[in-house]
Amino acid sequence: MKKKLSFLERAAAVPHMVWAIMFIVAPLLFVAYFAFTDANGSFTLSNIELLSSYSHIFLVSICFSLVATFCCLLIGYPLAFVISRSKPSTQKLLTVLLMLPMWISLLIRTYSLMTLLDNGGLVNSLLTALGFEPVTMVGTGGAVILGMIYDFLPYMVLPIYTSMQKMDHRYLEAAADLGCNSFQTMFRVVLPLTAPGILSGITMVFVPSISTFYISQKLGGGNFDLIGDTIERQFKYPSTYHVGAALSLVMMILILISVAVMNRFSDQEGEMIV
């Protein structure tokens, strides 16, 4: 009986396995294959060597993603705290409001943000109506980072909010009892106890930020080449597939390293992130 059940259980996983092999494992192998071959299909390291000319793109991408992640943390942490401390009914409402944008396609969200920030957009109309000079926003690095923050903020707030909700409120009372004012309670107790949520949030914002191409294209007005854009461009023409594959491979390794680092931190907290 038990054996039969476990066979069924295994069978239940087959559709996903097929899916994963066809659309995840196989493409990954292709990426690796293309990265180490030339147009004739023979082994070469020249694609990888070529990557050194893209190093500034990697640098800019990492910088943008780090700034966006940091801003998300700065905005998201207090927000998560406020939500977790409010009444249960308010909590539900606020989390729905927070998740609402996630139900809309990322492309549409980014596009609507662009129309807001455009030279003739809502923000500038408002500024001119109030008698201020219009500000050029689209095409600046600030707009790209704002787009990343706007698109990925929920991914920061939700894991932090979850870890705050799990936290026993008695720890806060114990801290107050031992002489902490609310500021000290925050830094000595709440922050360390929600560290797994913070790490998880950082990973979940940093990874999509570093690989995005749409945000930088629309809000950056083509002035900023991030890794995502560069990779996308390489795959437009068959002749540059091999460089694109090498770029993808390096980015994947970067992401894996950052996830591994985060997991290592959170292992010490006794909890896995991803």
Partner: peptide
């Protein structure tokens, strides 16, 4: 936190 009182909580609430 300003009271000269300390508490041993029901389920200890150790950090």
């Amino acid at each position: 936190h300003k009271r000269q009182v300390n508490t041993v909580f029901q389920k200890y609430a150790l950090f």
